[in-house]
Amino acid sequence: MTSLHYTLIALGIGLVGAVMLYNFWQERRSRKQAERLFQPVEHDEPVSLGDLPLHEDIPETRIEPRIQLLDDVPAGEPVAEPEVGWDMAVEPEPVPFAAASEPLPEPAAGEPAAPVVAEAPVAPGVQPLAPESPLDAEVEYVARLRYTQPTTVQFAALQDGLRRISKPIRMVGRREDGGWEAVMGHAARAYDTVEMGLLLADRAGPVSEVQLETFCRRLYEFATEHGGAISCQDKAEAVERAKALDGFCAEVDMLIGLNVIPSEGGFANDTVNELAVQAGLEQGADGTYVLKDAARRPLFTLTDGGAGQDETAHGVSLLFDVPRVADGLAAFDRMTELGLALAERLHGHLVDDGGRPVSRASLERDRRSLEAIYARMAGHGVPAGGERALRLFA
């Protein structure tokens, strides 16, 4: 090795040592700065929560906001606008309501509108709907939202929340001209009264007390946020009505099915299609044939087991939804005649849903039973195929 090599080695060792000394100095300097920053601060006098200024008027318990009711104000005293603050009372329980006996007074020019009013309880038997309301109090639980004057409110958020109840709900509003219309969520229309009808029963069963509680709670929350006075009918009584209505519906809810089964093999789909079209049935996109009345309402359906799969049908089924057809006896006659004709033309056997052979005598007995069902529905105020029946048996 030459002297140059020794010189370079010495310089390298010196440089490494200098870097190590510099890093040690930087680390020690940073540690001292950190100790100065994070060491506890000493106070001359200790500070406690008792020394902090607190508001003396904060109540000990949480108080919910509410809409002030005129019934809560003594006679002769002016009614103040409801305020949001600590002095608001607990939200009232919903009460039954009736149509107002007197129109609400219009506010004078320059004066603020009076607070909204919830109707007082009324005696049983009083019609709870506003005049000419399109809702049906016999099969719906009705709540009312009232304003002192026509008001424009967006109902989209409320409607979205009510859909989670999983029961059909209708919402109608009364315009300034007194006419009623279905409330659209984002429509900018002014209403003085909005009514919501929750169907008491459907094919999924009766409405429950939990669903009614949720329904009313969402309406009260909406009124608290957007204004208006909500009135709800008695929930316990509505639950009993729902159970009774559901029991009646269960007794008359029938689907009559007839099946044509082959003696062996299957039926040619072309033949089934020809006979169905000759009988006046229309084939839908899913392959199901439907017979419709003059108003384009379904009377009964026909399906074959081979539709869309191969050229052979392994059976033909006719289905008749009893409570949803207005002229049910005529529809039943047409369906049974088609079933008998199909069995004869296709050389098959006509059986019911239980696989039992069907004859003209057995069909006549079924027809008499059907007459009794339709008479009972009419006597109960739910005629087959009517608006009530279509909603209850949707």
Results as ranks from 00 to 15, higher is better:
Arg62Ser: 13
Glu42Tyr: 08
Ala100Tyr: 03
Ala89Tyr: 11
Asp57Gly: 02
Ala80Gln: 03
Arg66Ser: 13
Tyr141Lys: 01
Glu81Lys: 02
Val73Cys: 06
Val126Ala: 13
Glu111Gly: 00
Glu77Trp: 11
Pro107Leu: 02
Glu60Met: 03
Ala114Thr: 06
Arg144Trp: 09
Gly76Ala: 10
Leu129Val: 12
Glu91Arg: 08
Leu69Ser: 07
Val90Gln: 15
Pro107Thr: 04
Pro46Ile: 09
Ser133Leu: 07
Gln149Thr: 02
Leu37Phe: 06
Pro92Phe: 12
His43Met: 11
Leu54Phe: 15
Val73Thr: 11
Ile58Leu: 15
Pro103Thr: 04
Ala130Gln: 11
Ser133His: 10
Pro124Ala: 13
Arg62Leu: 14
Leu69Cys: 05
Val117Ser: 05
Ala100Cys: 00
Val116Lys: 14
Gly85Val: 00
Pro112Cys: 06
Leu49Thr: 04
Leu145Thr: 02
Val95Gln: 14
Pro46Trp: 09
Arg144His: 02
Pro112Tyr: 06
Glu102Tyr: 13
Glu56Thr: 14
Ile63Pro: 08
Glu140Asp: 06
Pro82Phe: 00
His43Lys: 07
Arg66Met: 09
Ser101Gln: 13
Ala137Ser: 14
Ala100Gln: 05
Glu119Thr: 04
His43Asn: 10
Pro96Gln: 03
Val90Thr: 15
Leu129Glu: 14
Pro74Arg: 07
Gly110Lys: 08
His43Pro: 00
Arg146Ile: 00
Ala89Val: 04
Leu129Phe: 11
Glu64Lys: 03
Pro131Gly: 05
Ile63Phe: 15
Ala120Glu: 12
Val95Tyr: 12
Ala130His: 08
Pro78Met: 01
Pro74Ser: 04
Pro59Val: 09
Pro59Ser: 07
Val116Glu: 15
Val41His: 11
Pro40Val: 01
Glu77Cys: 02
Pro112Trp: 06
Pro105Met: 08
Pro115Cys: 07
Ala75Asn: 11
His55Cys: 12
Tyr147Glu: 00
Pro74Met: 03
Val47Thr: 05
Ala89Lys: 09
Glu64Asn: 08
Gly85Lys: 01
Glu83Val: 06
Val117Trp: 02
Ala114Val: 05
Pro53Ser: 12
Pro107Asn: 03
Asp44Asn: 12
Ala80Trp: 07
Val79Arg: 01
Pro131Asp: 11
Pro103Asp: 09
His55Ser: 14
Asp44Cys: 09
Glu102Phe: 14
Pro94Gly: 02
Glu64Phe: 13
Leu135Cys: 12
Gly85Pro: 01
Pro96Ala: 05
Thr148Asp: 00
Ser48Cys: 09
Glu106Val: 15
Ala113His: 07
Glu91Cys: 03
Gln127Glu: 13
Glu42Gln: 13
Val142Phe: 07
Gly76Cys: 13
Thr151His: 10
Leu49Lys: 02
Ala114Cys: 10
Pro150Asp: 04
Pro94Ile: 06
Tyr147Ser: 00
Leu54Asn: 15
Asp136Thr: 00
